[in-house]
Nucleic acid binder design. Structure first.
Length: 758
RNA sequence: GGACCCGUAGCUCAACGGUAGAGCGUUCGGUUUACAUCCGAAAGGUUAGGGGUUCGAAACCCUUCGGGUCCACCA
């Protein structure tokens, strides 16, 4: 044995020994209760980050249960990660001077698919480097046909149950990414902006001054609004305003919604580009077409503003207002804009027909399940409160995304008779054609050509149901006449919300019957709403049973200064670099050690190095025992099994003491793992092995070993073996390696050795 | 605007009603062959401030200050 533990080479050899031995694959045994964890599926084409390394918690639980003899399944998978992946791919495309508009849907989809295939294994290999005992034979990818089929089936089921509907509402839309988002996916950005004060002329003469942060939307206004209690404006309600620039005449209306203290107390109303205004305009039945399009350019204004980008239009309009002497002044204004969580561009509220899931009926059972304790949230009660608050105030879920990377909604619209109601853009002979189907057909394109090159379709929602093209939701396109499939794809979370079902082979498979509901889900709290809450809803909806019994929320990893790791801060630490440098065991242990539940987990090079020193300490304790076994002058004693028993009567006080301390350690470690206090378990092990066993007991026993005291050697060996077992879930590599060296006669590797009975 | 969390050793955090601890860092002393990736020792805390409850408070309550998070709104 080397003087120093060198993890390189050893880790690889040990991992492949485990994998080849099939120890990660549990045997289904109806007589035993399984222990199951689903790996929160990482983005299949994303390399691992420190957050993923925290899945160590799951490995600890899995290894612990495996050693206890439970059929322990830790199920890995990869996510196609819709918008995330398409965004990465588009960046890659743009490096080659291309964009998504250069391809029809099918081609683009195929290209992204190949791109993901190429990168899929990176993440998998990295998980192995951490020593994760995942059952790779059960690996699933979120776009496997069987999985997608189940997901589509859920959609059809929801539709049948009246829990899916299509509606045209304002959606936060990213004009760069070309898609709308659900409310959850929107990020806020604070900035110092300007509040502009503008005079709107009144038809009867004089003017009313309004305040706005978005002067360009004047082009789409339908009213000026004041508070009915506002004495300053009471006499103006009902009057007519001549909208600057376009000279359109709009009314002054009164609504409680207006805050009299803000700005001038008079607000312009732009129905299609502001969430409140949208509601107000609906209430007052005021209509004007959207003046900003999906490319972020002005439209429908019938002025030379059409075609200008929003910010350019804003500058131009301010100039024009100044010329007309209607611009009063601007003042600094602290404001918050909504930005795309992916690319950071300011989102544009735009009216868009989208598919929604009615969430209230799904949330009710999910609330009940947690209330009744069918699913428990640990470690902190406060997350339970967060869960209830969100579930109770849940909004309907927009599941439409205008991207290609994901399964399309299994929805078809009838084309016959609706040629003038369906707008499509499609690619043909290298150029994009946009317009109504009717127009394309008259331009001489065949319907097949349109479908083949289809990029996107848009069908408004008509108040008059007779005008609405017939919708078909089913397994495949109806055979009578011409139909066109919805171009929207599913929100990624719609797929991942069903992961516990799909990955286990719902609706019917041996795995599903045996492993569902899973034992525990471990994840960070930031996706509690995105993912965990939705898995609860979908699991209960489809399987009538909760998807997991425990939700274990771990915390954020921060750097040594307590700062969040971010590329922009330059403090991102790559877990694989740390594994290379200090070993997987060291990294794993440093993520657990000192990581109290509910507080951030601070990690630094220094800390990992400290834990590497611990793995080396263990190595050297093993080395010391091995040297003594090899040099032992009394031959023919069986150290591995009987040595200890044979000499029980010869135990000295020091031996008895260490054995009793070991007993307490076994109890404490077991109790702390069961109570999800991995930090405490790790600290006890560290303290015992290093400062009790090594520093005290070994030092005390050295003289006896020189005198060939069998009892001393037996106790030494016994205590250390027990330590290796207890430590194995935390530091699997070094413990397995030493165990093998000390027990070369044994057939059973440490990974499946028995956990002590306590 | 609503809710929540955290202020304890230089740093990161424990202790959750009963003598304030650990890791890392710092200082001093050690090459007695398992380990210098080591061993031994030391320094370092009116537990953010104030008030209250209690025989006893870092812990429970009130309050001030400081740091952070989530949700809603933001014309």
């Amino acid at each position: 044995m080397d003087k120093i533990y060198n993890h390189k080479g050893i880790e690889e050899r040990i991992y492949s020994m485990w994998e080849k031995g099939g120890y990660f694959t549990p045997k289904i045994d109806p007589a035993k209760k399984p222990f199951t964890i689903l790996l929160p599926l990482p983005n299949a084409n994303d390399p691992m980050h420190m957050g993923h390394a925290l899945f160590t918690v799951q490995d600890i639980l899995i290894r612990y249960h495996r050693m206890k003899g439970d059929p322990a399944l830790w199920l890995p998978g990869g996510d196609h990660a819709g918008i995330e992946t398409q965004f990465v791919f588009e960046k890659y495309l743009s490096k080659q001077g291309k964009s998504r508009f250069d391809f029809d849907r099918e081609t683009l989809y195929r290209m992204i698919s190949e791109f993901v295939e190429k990168n899929k294994n990176i993440n998998r290999d990295q998980m192995k480097r951490l020593g994760f005992s995942l059952d790779w034979t059960r690996y699933h990818y979120s776009l496997e046909p069987e999985i997608v089929e189940t997901v589509l089936d859920t959609f059809r089921q929801l539709y049948k149950d009246g829990l899916i509907y299509r509606d045209e509402r304002l959606v936060n839309y990213c004009t760069r990414c070309g898609t709308g988002f659900s409310d959850l996916e929107v990020k806020d950005q604070e900035l110092e902006g300007l509040l502009y004060f503008i005079n709107f002329p009144l038809l009867k003469g004089d003017f009313i001054q309004i305040a706005t942060t978005r002067p360009e939307t004047i082009l789409g206004d339908v009213a000026v609004m004041v508070n009915p209690k506002d004495k300053r404006y009471k006499h103006l309600v009902g009057e007519t305003v001549i909208l600057p620039i376009t000279n359109r005449k709009i009314p002054i209306i009164a609504d409680e919604h207006v805050d009299m203290k803000f700005g001038t107390g008079a607000v312009k109303v732009t129905p299609n580009h502001d969430f409140n205004d949208f509601e107000i305009a609906k209430k007052h039945k005021l209509y004007y077409p959207p003046i900003i399009g999906f490319e972020g350019k002005m439209q429908n204004t019938k002025t030379d503003y059409d075609g200008l980008k929003v910010l350019i239009a804003r500058e131009k309009i301010l100039g024009d207002l100044k010329v007309k002497n209607l611009y009063a002044y601007a003042k600094k204004h602290h404001m918050v804009v909504k930005i795309c969580y992916k690319c950071g561009k300011t989102l544009e509220p735009l009216p868009l027909p989208q598919w929604y899931v009615k969430t209230k009926p799904l949330a009710a059972p999910a609330i009940k399940a947690v209330k009744e304790g069918k699913t428990k949230i640990v470690p902190l009660k406060r997350f339970e409160k967060l869960y209830f608050d969100w579930m109770k105030n849940i909004l309907d879920w927009n599941i439409s995304r205008q991207i290609v990377w994901g399964p399309r909604l299994p929805v078809w619209y009838k084309v016959d008779g609706n040629e003038q109601r369906i707008w499509v853009s499609f690619l043909t002979q290298g150029s994009v054609k946009q317009g109504l189907v009717d127009q394309h057909l008259r331009d001489g394109y065949s319907f097949d050509e349109i479908v083949k090159g289809l990029q996107r379709l848009l069908i408004p929602i008509y108040e008059n149901k007779n005008k609405q093209p017939e919708v078909y939701v089913g397994k495949k396109q109806p055979e009578d006449g011409l139909w066109i499939q919805e171009t929207d794809t599913f929100d990624t979370w719609f797929l991942s919300s069903q992961w516990p079902l799909t990955t286990l082979g719902f609706p019917d498979s041996e795995d599903f019957r045996y492993f569902y509901p899973t034992s525990l889900l471990d994840t960070m709290w930031d996706i509690l709403f995105f993912w965990v809450a939705r898995m609860m809803m979908m699991g209960l909806y489809r399987a009538k049973e909760v998807p997991f019994k425990i939700i274990h929320l771990h915390c954020r990893i921060v750097d040594a200064k307590g700062q969040k790791m971010a590329k922009s801060r330059g403090n991102v630490m790559n877990p694989i670099d740390m594994v290379d440098k200090y070993g997987a065991d060291a990294l794993r242990f440093s993520l657990i050690f000192g990581a109290a539940p509910g507080s951030d987990i601070a990690i630094s090079d220094d800390k990992i190095r400290g834990m590497r020193n611990f793995s080396n300490k263990i190595w050297n304790v093993g080395r010391f025992i091995k040297i003594n076994i090899d040099n032992f002058k009394i031959q023919n004693i069986d150290i591995s099994e009987c040595g200890f028993k044979a000499h029980r009567s010869h135990l000295q006080p020091a031996d008895k003491k260490i054995l009793s301390q070991l007993g307490s350690l076994e109890k404490a470690v077991t109790k702390n793992i069961e109570g999800y206090r991995f930090d405490k378990a790790a600290e006890r092990l560290y303290e015992f092995i290093w400062h009790v066993f090594a520093d005290k007991y070994i030092e005390a026993v050295k003289e006896r070993l020189k005198n060939n005291d069998q009892t001393a050697l037996s106790v030494l060996k016994k205590v250390f073996d027990a330590c290796l077992i207890l430590l194995h879930p935390f530091m699997p590599f070094v413990t397995e390696e030493i165990y093998e060296k000390l027990n070369s006669d044994r057939k059973i590797p440490l990974i499946i050795s028995s956990w002590p009975q306590v």
